[in-house]
Simulated scan of single mutants.
Amino acid sequence: MSATSHPSTPASIDAIYRAHHGWLLGWFRRRLGGASCAADLAHDTFVRLMLSRDALSLAEPRAFLRTLAHGVVVNHWRRQDIERAWREALAVLPEPMAPSPEERLMALETLCRIDAMLDRLNPKARAAFLLSQLDGLTYAEIGTQLKVSERMMKKYMAQAMLQCLLLAEQP
């Protein structure tokens, strides 16, 4: 079997890169209106390809790259939304209370990590966690709103809290 039949090998990743990088770059430019970040996002897509367990059995590299690229562009849009909301929140702060550029970057990175953590939760667990933490509702109130038992609420909150602990352990 040749090296090009195993996409996880450097030679085959290189072959996929050479064969599909230009197409992928164009795909990002079309999705993002010719954005200058298209090259960075294409790079991120190939990094995901290299890290993928599915890369060992690629029959259709372009279709797989498109799937990976879709996730990359969705994450890009989500990050832009978070950055926009963060800038809007900072704009209303009085100048002496405004965080330094370093603090702003750290806060933005933390917000993006929290967003990714929330996205990993199932929808009801995410809703339960947010209703508890942001709205201050009790488990019984949330259970009524989500039409689940209080026992299920405890399970959802345990899932969310576990994700919070895992997030806190990350560097």
Score class of each variant (00 low, 15 high):
38 A>Y: 01
71 G>K: 04
28 F>Q: 04
94 P>F: 09
92 V>L: 10
141 E>L: 00
68 L>Q: 09
105 L>H: 06
115 D>K: 05
101 P>G: 10
10 P>D: 13
98 A>P: 06
86 W>T: 07
116 A>W: 05
136 G>L: 08
84 R>D: 07
134 L>Q: 14
92 V>T: 12
108 L>F: 07
21 H>K: 14
124 K>I: 01
30 R>A: 12
60 E>C: 02
50 M>L: 04
143 G>Y: 02
102 E>T: 10
51 L>C: 13
106 M>H: 11
34 G>Q: 10
170 Q>S: 12
41 L>M: 07
75 N>D: 15
6 H>V: 13
34 G>D: 07
94 P>L: 08
24 L>D: 00
16 I>M: 06
131 L>G: 00
82 I>G: 00
46 F>Y: 14
124 K>D: 14
162 L>D: 15
24 L>Q: 00
135 D>N: 08
46 F>D: 15
169 E>T: 09
115 D>I: 03
136 G>D: 01
130 L>G: 01
143 G>K: 01
106 M>N: 02
117 M>R: 09
161 M>H: 14
145 Q>K: 10
154 K>R: 14
25 L>C: 02
100 S>Y: 00
114 I>W: 10
139 Y>T: 09
162 L>H: 12
161 M>R: 11
127 A>Q: 07
89 A>L: 01
9 T>S: 13
125 A>M: 00
89 A>G: 00
30 R>D: 09
43 H>Y: 11
45 T>D: 06
58 L>Y: 02
3 A>Q: 10
166 L>Y: 06
37 C>G: 00
47 V>Q: 10
89 A>I: 03
56 L>R: 12
75 N>L: 04
114 I>S: 08
80 Q>H: 03
14 D>V: 05
72 V>L: 09
165 L>D: 12
36 S>V: 08
94 P>E: 07
166 L>F: 12
128 A>Q: 02
48 R>Q: 14
129 F>K: 00
5 S>Q: 15
107 A>P: 04
50 M>E: 08
121 L>P: 09
21 H>V: 06
123 P>Y: 07
148 V>P: 00
88 E>H: 12
132 S>W: 05
129 F>Q: 03
14 D>G: 04
150 E>I: 14
150 E>V: 15
117 M>W: 05
113 R>Q: 12
26 G>W: 05
68 L>R: 11
75 N>K: 13
41 L>E: 08
109 E>D: 05
11 A>V: 09
142 I>N: 05
16 I>N: 06
38 A>I: 11
149 S>Y: 08
31 R>W: 13
125 A>N: 01
120 R>M: 15
122 N>R: 07
93 L>E: 12
142 I>F: 00
33 G>F: 04
126 R>K: 13
80 Q>K: 03
135 D>M: 00
49 L>E: 08
97 M>A: 14
36 S>R: 14
133 Q>E: 11
36 S>N: 15
83 E>M: 13
51 L>M: 09
115 D>S: 14
96 P>N: 03
10 P>K: 09
7 P>G: 12
44 D>M: 02
135 D>P: 07
9 T>H: 04
137 L>T: 08
151 R>D: 11
151 R>A: 15
20 H>I: 01
42 A>R: 10
92 V>E: 12
61 P>S: 01
63 A>P: 01
116 A>I: 06
62 R>P: 03
121 L>V: 03
101 P>C: 03
